[in-house]
Amino acid sequence: MNIDKVEISRLKMPLKQPFETSFGRLTFKDFLVVSIHSGDFVGYAESASLPYPIYNEETTGTVSYILKEFLIPKLFSVERIKHPTEIHKLFQPIRRNNMAKAVIDGAVWDLYAKQQGISLATALGGDKQEIDVGVSIGIEATVGKVLEKVERFIAEGYKKIKVKIKPGHDVEVVRAIREQFGPDVPLMADANSSYSLDDAPILKQLDQFNLIMIEQPLAHDDIIDHAKLQKQLSTPICLDESIHSVEDARKAIELGSCKIINIKVGRVGGLTEAKKIHDLCKSNNIPVWCGGMLEAGIGRAHNIALSALDNFSIPGDTSASDRYWAYDIVTPEIMLSQPGRLQVPDSPGIGYEINTSVFEQYLISKEFFTNELIVK
């Protein structure tokens, strides 16, 4: 494929209600959409970055800078791209900045799939027609508020309930969910790296609740102490923030740092690396699932396509559009095909069109790049 033009759009979308984790509270999503044009085809991807460097070191602003100053010029430095996997190799000399890399990688994958006349899921090697999905519940002011949301999402048929925890908001919350809804609700806890090894006695109390996993209990860049903690717990540890590459995943598996891995496309630098991690985990009998970053419809569509790969055996966080947004930027909006399940599109690329009116409503700025000039 020959790249004719790259477009960066910055959007700001208000969340239907605030979403709080151990590292902060969000009331809106400020993000970038990259579209890559080649002839009559356009590939789309959405940055996973947040407005603040609270999940990782990247922000919407830093992603924008890295795209304009380094990645887009590199993209135009090659005459022709034969396959999306070439993007990962092209960007290797640039250290980290994975969310910036991922948005180019994803747009090229979507463009490639459209040019080939196949779905993005098929292009990646996935063959599922539907995927099971879960839902993530943020930290609420009271345990009662958490229970209200759990009740609602169970009624909607979600296949996994993820509840955010932090010190002082953990055992009591999980116990209350189990007491009200019983032992069979598929439940997990996400700590977002808010504990230390000194908190092992508290985390061990969670073993009694038959959780699917505890996600990233210790430091965001750690795999050593997680191995020590996993030996003390019967509940599987899932790593999220610690895994930035297939090499990180390999080391964590060899050390025994986790029994499950969460794959987020933005965190690992794109769909190419995400697929490598999936394949490594499959060969080591480590189940994976697709985590969410409060994506709008384009990012959500990429997550659906990735989750069509066979080792995504645990429901991910890719809930329906109306979980977070009054109006989404894709049409049709992403809706449950049946309770707790989403259909994997079989039309070319991501399988959704841009809802232009909604897109324009949330648009803050737009920039165009070609090999010859930048038009603002």
Rank of each mutant, 00 (worst) to 15 (best):
D222N: 14
R250W: 08
D170F: 02
S245T: 11
V185C: 05
D225K: 08
D207F: 14
Q216C: 07
L197K: 07
K162M: 12
L218T: 11
Y158M: 02
L211N: 10
K259L: 10
L239D: 10
P217A: 03
A219H: 13
S234I: 15
C258R: 03
N262R: 01
L211C: 12
K159P: 01
S242L: 02
A249T: 09
P201C: 02
G256K: 09
K204G: 05
K164D: 04
H226T: 03
P217F: 03
D225Y: 11
A200I: 12
V246Q: 09
F181Y: 14
L255Q: 14
E241P: 02
G157F: 01
L211A: 04
P236I: 01
D222G: 13
S245Y: 03
Q205R: 14
I212N: 00
H169P: 00
S245W: 05
L218S: 04
D221I: 07
S242Q: 03
K166Q: 15
E254V: 09
V173P: 03
G168M: 04
A227W: 12
I161M: 10
V173R: 07
E179H: 11
Q216A: 02
K159R: 15
E241Y: 07
L233S: 06
D190R: 04
V163L: 09
D240I: 13
K164G: 02
A189G: 05
R178G: 13
A252L: 13
I237T: 01
A227E: 12
I161D: 09
G168C: 12
A227P: 10
S194H: 10
D240N: 08
L218V: 03
H220F: 15
M188W: 01
A191Y: 04
D190Y: 10
V185W: 05
I261T: 06
K264G: 00
I224Q: 06
E241K: 01
